[in-house]
Simulated assay, not measured.
Amino acid sequence: MTNPTTERLDGRRAVVTGASKGTGAAIASRLRDRGATVLSVARTRPPGAGLFRRADLTTPEGIATVAEGVRQELGGVDILVHTLGGSSAPPGGFAVLTDRDWDTELRLNLLAAVRLDRTLLPAMLEAGRGAVVHVSSIQRRLPLYDGTLGYAAAKAALTTYSKGLANEVGPRGVRVNVVSPGFIRTSAADALIERMSAAHRCSPEQALSRLMDSLGGIPLGRPAEPAEVAELVAFLVSDRAAAITGGEYTIDGGTVPTVG
């Protein structure tokens, strides 16, 4: 039975992907702080992770590893937060992206979530309860064509898929929402700046300025912190958000210039 007055997650079993660093690690930590038992999933073990499964979710074998971890470590799942994502494609616009680049971006940023949902949601539907959060990106509305076009397209697909999934499983007690961060202060963001710096033969500061300009600036005056994204996710999977499903929640310091 839900309790709309509490943010506590005592007794809830959660899976958090992409949990080795940055936003994913912050989300896993916040859910643990709220009382959830968390199984962290990543390619490398994060410090202090507790329950952990090493898995490459871009492969069927990786998905099977997570399913095994859920059975052995949790005995089921009530919360799924899919944070995994990123881009390793070269900068330079659409013409430099090969079929292999597109395949990599789609497997990491879309198909990993689809396959994991297909594996874990049936148990939630059978139980008649559950909360899912997919982490997308404001790039689904503000694509950076120079550096991360494939990533942006995949995240747009993830957001649309999430809305359809929410409509399908909502009547059976499972809530699905999307969190779309803007520029977050993470090591992945630093890596993107380094790639852009090398490609354009400019300083990291100039590359950062170029990146910020391409986003249209951040009215708040700073990037968000991983812990701030984690706070939003923790709310969405709690009973305080029991009536919220099919939504997209943007956390970008005002970067997106429209209300949506």
Rank of each mutant, 00 (worst) to 15 (best):
Y145F: 14
E194F: 01
R107T: 04
Q139W: 11
N3F: 10
L142S: 03
E126K: 14
R185W: 13
G150P: 04
P60R: 13
A89V: 03
A154L: 05
S238L: 00
E73S: 14
S20A: 12
G69H: 09
I218R: 02
G24Y: 03
D190H: 14
T83W: 01
R8C: 09
N177C: 08
L57E: 11
A152D: 03
V135P: 09
R12D: 01
T245W: 10
W102N: 12
R32K: 04
T255C: 04
A191V: 11
A113W: 00
V81Y: 01
L125Y: 00
R32I: 04
A123E: 15
L220W: 14
V66H: 03
L57K: 03
V135M: 13
T58E: 11
G173R: 12
R43H: 03
H200E: 14
R172K: 13
M212R: 12
G69I: 05
G253E: 10
G216Q: 04
V176Q: 03
P91K: 02
T37W: 05
Y151S: 02
T65S: 10
P257C: 07
D33T: 13
R115A: 13
L236A: 02
G50K: 10
A198Y: 05
A123R: 11
I193D: 03
G24H: 02
A25E: 14
S88K: 13
D117Y: 07
S136Y: 04
Y249A: 08
P60S: 08
H134F: 13
P171L: 00
M124P: 07
A156D: 00
Q72D: 14
A89S: 14
E231K: 02
A95C: 09
H200R: 15
A243N: 15
G62W: 07
A191I: 11
A189P: 01
E228S: 09
R32N: 08
G130F: 12
V114I: 04
S203C: 12
P143F: 04
R8S: 15
D239P: 06
A49I: 06
E194R: 08
L57A: 11
P122S: 12
E68S: 15
A64N: 05
T17G: 01
I79E: 01
L97N: 09
R54D: 14
V41I: 13
S88H: 12
R53D: 01
R118S: 10
R8V: 10
A241N: 01
G18A: 08
S238H: 01
T58V: 06
P4L: 00
P226K: 13
D213C: 05
T255V: 10
P204L: 04
A131K: 12
G216I: 07
L236G: 09
I79H: 00
T250W: 15
R115P: 14
G92N: 04
G216Y: 07
L192H: 12
T160G: 15
V132I: 02
S209T: 14
A224V: 11
L108M: 13
L31G: 10
V41F: 05
G50W: 11
D10A: 09
S214L: 12
P60G: 08
L120W: 09
I193W: 06
A112W: 06
G50T: 08
G85Q: 11
